[in-house]
């Protein structure tokens, strides 16, 4: 269980899933799978919000009540080389509102695939620092409806992302900082005209790109024993505000700042690790103020080399 799973980007109310909510599992940590090792597992989580930001106005909505989201995600990380990992994740998401009449939504969301490449590192004044680049793609795996926020399970945009990550370890203390640019492709919706700040006659919606950063720090005895605090921030580069008492739209100007606590602990030597975290959105725009918790179980094993077999 080398990789420290960072479920942190799981912003569970999925209107919140501005970019793929589960994007970046292990993409935001400085930890690695050894060559020819595979680590895979399941992570489950839930989140909810009753307040959201309509533009910058903080409000609730009695016709939504509490929006709850839960997910189950399969993920895996394989070490193709000492310095190169391939990571995937695939979430199944379920959203529902406690009030109003709108039907709940559920389904497979987006497949994320990323390549994490260690670029180099050195000892520096008694600390070890390293630099990593992570390139990722994501694409929707089912034909879910994006234009039904806040119940939609995602926004359907195919993405291309690049993250640069710096990691520092000093004794049992660590700090990791990273920032990513997420390029988002236009999406298609089921109607041929919609209003943003003007009328648009198309079934295509241009999605603003996303910039995100994250800092995490705490105790890291080794890659299997971690307790950390994190803060992350994401914002779309453009987009428009919801109008007064309007519904959200996939190309809204979305922002979110979140804080959280996480831990990872390996049990024995069986290749099994537990992990979990809790988080809370503390600031936002055109998104729900979600509180979230999740927990996962992952298993790591060495993939045997190919050997000849004789019948």
């Amino acid at each position: 269980m080398k990789p420290y799973f960072k479920f942190v980007l799981i912003s569970a109310s999925m209107w919140i899933s501005i970019w793929n909510p589960l994007h970046g599992q292990t993409e935001t940590d400085g930890l690695w799978m050894p060559k020819r090792n595979f680590c895979g597992g399941l992570i489950a989580g839930a989140s909810s919000w009753t307040h959201y930001w309509e533009g910058t106005l903080h409000r609730n909505n009695q016709n939504i009540g509490t929006l709850s989201s839960s997910f189950l995600m399969a993920m895996g990380n394989y070490g193709v080389g000492e310095n190169t990992n391939i990571i995937f994740s695939l979430p199944y998401i379920s959203n529902k509102a406690s009030a109003g009449t709108l039907a709940p939504q559920q389904g497979l969301q987006d497949l994320n695939l990323s390549v994490k490449q260690y670029l180099g590192g050195r000892n520096w004044k008694g600390s070890t620092v390293g630099l990593t680049a992570v390139g990722g793609v994501s694409t929707p795996l089912s034909n879910y409806v994006a234009d039904f926020l806040p119940l939609a399970i995602g926004v359907r945009s195919r993405t291309l992302s690049l993250r640069l990550l710096g990691d520092l370890q000093r004794g049992k203390f660590f700090a990791t900082a990273s920032a990513a640019y997420v390029r988002r492709a236009s999406i298609e919706i089921d109607r041929t005209a919609y209003y943003t700040t003007e009328m648009v006659y198309s079934n295509q919606v241009i999605m603003p790109d996303v910039f995100t950063w994250m800092v995490r720090t705490g105790y890291r005895k080794d890659p299997d024993h971690i307790v950390e605090f994190f803060v992350d921030r994401m914002n779309t580069l453009g987009g428009f505000d919801m109008r007064r008492n309007d519904m959200p739209f996939p190309s809204n100007n979305m922002e979110q700042t979140r804080i959280g606590l996480g831990a990872k602990w390996a049990l024995g030597k069986q290749g099994l690790s537990f992990m979990g975290n809790v988080s809370r959105v503390v600031a936002g725009r055109n998104m729900g103020q979600a509180s979230a918790a999740m927990a996962g179980l992952v298993w790591q094993f060495a993939v045997p080399r190919k050997t000849k077999t004789y019948n």
Partner: peptide, 18 residues
Amino acid sequence: MKPMHNFPSTQSALKALT
């Protein structure tokens, strides 16, 4: 058996010293 942890930032620093 569980393999050794591979932690490149440490490992490469060691490499550099060799």
